[in-house]
């Protein structure tokens, strides 16, 4: 990549933070959704284990 691409015709300090923030939002969305699902799975597994120990 040449330097004029990164320079963005003088608008680099507006364009690049926007792109970076967009990427951050996308990554956050995916990461937080995965964490949410993992937590739900853990909680469900714990519930199943408790139910099993009570049944015994």
């Amino acid at each position: 990549m040449n330097s004029s691409f990164w320079y963005m015709g003088g608008y680099a300090r507006y364009v690049w933070p926007c792109v970076a923030f967009a990427c951050a939002v996308l990554v956050w969305n995916f990461w937080s959704a995965q964490r949410y699902l993992a937590a739900a799975k853990r909680r469900a597994a714990r519930g199943l284990a408790m139910a099993a120990s009570e049944a015994r």
Binding site: N29, A33, Q34, L37, A40, G47
Partner: peptide, 21 residues
């Protein structure tokens, strides 16, 4: 499409939380 992917992940979590029993 990305929204679809994240929705699928979160939806699984929401469904699990509601259907634990």
């Amino acid at each position: 499409l990305f929204h679809g992917a994240v929705l699928c992940l979160r939806l699984q979590g929401e469904v699990l939380n509601r259907e634990r029993q």
